[in-house]
Design a protein around this nucleic acid. Sequence first.
DNA 1: TTGAAAGCGCTAACAC
DNA 2: GTGTTAGCGCTTTCAA
Lengths: 337, 337
Amino acid sequence: MRKKTSLKDIADALGVSIAIVSYVLNNKHEGRVSEYKANQIKEMAKKMNYFPNQIAKSLRKDKTYTLGLIIADISNLFYSNIARYIEDESKRHNYNVIFGSADENADKFKELVHVMLSRQVDGIILAAPKGTEATLNYLREQHIPFVLIDRHFPEVVNINTIGINNYQASYSVVEHITENGFKKPAMVTLSTDLYHMKERTLGFKHASTELLGMQSPEVVEIEEDILSDEIEGQMLNLLKNGTDLIYFSTNKIAMEGLAVLVEHNVKVPKKMGIVCFDKADAYKIFHTSITYVEQPLRQMGHEAVEVLLSLINGNQFAKSIVLGTHIVAQDSSKLPK
Amino acid sequence: MRKKTSLKDIADALGVSIAIVSYVLNNKHEGRVSEYKANQIKEMAKKMNYFPNQIAKSLRKDKTYTLGLIIADISNLFYSNIARYIEDESKRHNYNVIFGSADENADKFKELVHVMLSRQVDGIILAAPKGTEATLNYLREQHIPFVLIDRHFPEVVNINTIGINNYQASYSVVEHITENGFKKPAMVTLSTDLYHMKERTLGFKHASTELLGMQSPEVVEIEEDILSDEIEGQMLNLLKNGTDLIYFSTNKIAMEGLAVLVEHNVKVPKKMGIVCFDKADAYKIFHTSITYVEQPLRQMGHEAVEVLLSLINGNQFAKSIVLGTHIVAQDSSKLPK
DNA sequence: TTGAAAGCGCTAACAC
DNA sequence: GTGTTAGCGCTTTCAA
């Protein structure tokens, strides 16, 4: 690669000092440098194809204008979407974002954190896999600005979080389907220790008991690694045991579950009602429009960046933001008259 | 943020020189530093929570071990998938990747290129929007290592490209459906100047003429911005004019088109056969399994990184790699007996 | 108005 | 074995 133009090259070409060139090209020359010289410098910079070396700038200023973003799983639509909003929002504040996906793996997560720190990111936004409490505490002890999105760890205190009210979201789902006349819903979810998922399940359970009088609400928990093997059998069970609506707790599960329904030619909502968590573009190629719980993705991304930047800029107080969700009601949860 | 530990801090704590510490922590101390001291240093580094400042390292070595990746559109599954492979492959070579999406906008593309260059990336992988020939030529003139994926610009010569044989891919589609007994296929695609898309269309046209004797092969071109408004009308036309199979030239179009079929309750393949370009997870919730053209995404990502690294390491010769595709035949292109 | 110079954290050539 | 030092490109203080 050809040697790049530096401030010194411009300074030498014009016979002035590096300092002057720096001032001018950073527009800090009001009342310091003559207009004539300033213009000369700007022209020469353009002519010599100069653009600043951010690496050197960062080293000098101890600020990289880069945020780290570690998400739990890039193949999950929820995360890839929120990543876009975070990137947009960051760009608006003149920050860049470097990504990493931990693939729900605590070791990979830890490594990514260190990669980001090595690169001197100004702060980190993260959706942490389970088993990462120690790393989160480490970040806090080191006073590294970070905010947690989506995930929440009750045992890690005094940190910044952005999330939704998962309990309420599920509770509302049951309210919605109850109003629509369903009597025996089941929830299909992942077996996991993650707090936000447990809340999601709890909301469903409580509401099923309180609103539908179910003694033991039907919740099917499937291990993530064996999801595609297991789900068919589980769904067939539900089809037999009188379940009239299935609530899928994530996008991924929903896709697998809907595929089973298609394969077995199960009519929705006639034979089985459906509610999913999270929006997906693909729903529109399913034979019935799908009711889903919508998370405020854009707002979550926005808040995450806002909170992180306020930390970077010196704010000391931890802030937890809990956002609401809403149900987009479609045909899949509408019992035919 | 608390002051981070530097080499100097460790050196001071132990009363040795910075150089020694650097040698030890970079494992370059064979035969230079005593084992005892080396261990002392390593322990102290761990104790003081040291990790190297990559920014300083990069500045010094004029090498960031970072690759830039600019894709045309992040919301396109094809690109988000290939991005993953590129990231994986880069990580294997100890490179990091910084992303950007140009959203098919030439100005945004140009800006992203400069952001990447400012950050001193060692090289760039890019899927360029139309109208970016000048920027590509600039990169070449500056001897900045880069490789083009997916897209190809015949007028920009002597650069490195990784792509598929789009003409052949479409030609094979027509072969496939001809064998399966379809007589009057139509292609639905975007109206665009991009070379690779024009090739895709050309392959379809030629094959339709040569294999099916169609005088004027049916190709519907839709402007991208008005895709969702336009496609319904166009599809209804095809449904009326005797078309027996639709070939969607991209994932995005396929989704929109399939949604129209669902809405109008069109049976696939009975009433209309379907072939799509690119794989999508979501196909499985469509009422018929979908035939699609599969691109070797992993291999494309792999080759892109390989070629780029060879450029970075001094290779001078431009290389163009054209990969083959294959058809994954499913029910949507199987005419019922 | 302008310039000299220190120093961000690190590497590596060189001296001892 | 170990230490000194120059310098990567930049910003900014201080002096002129």
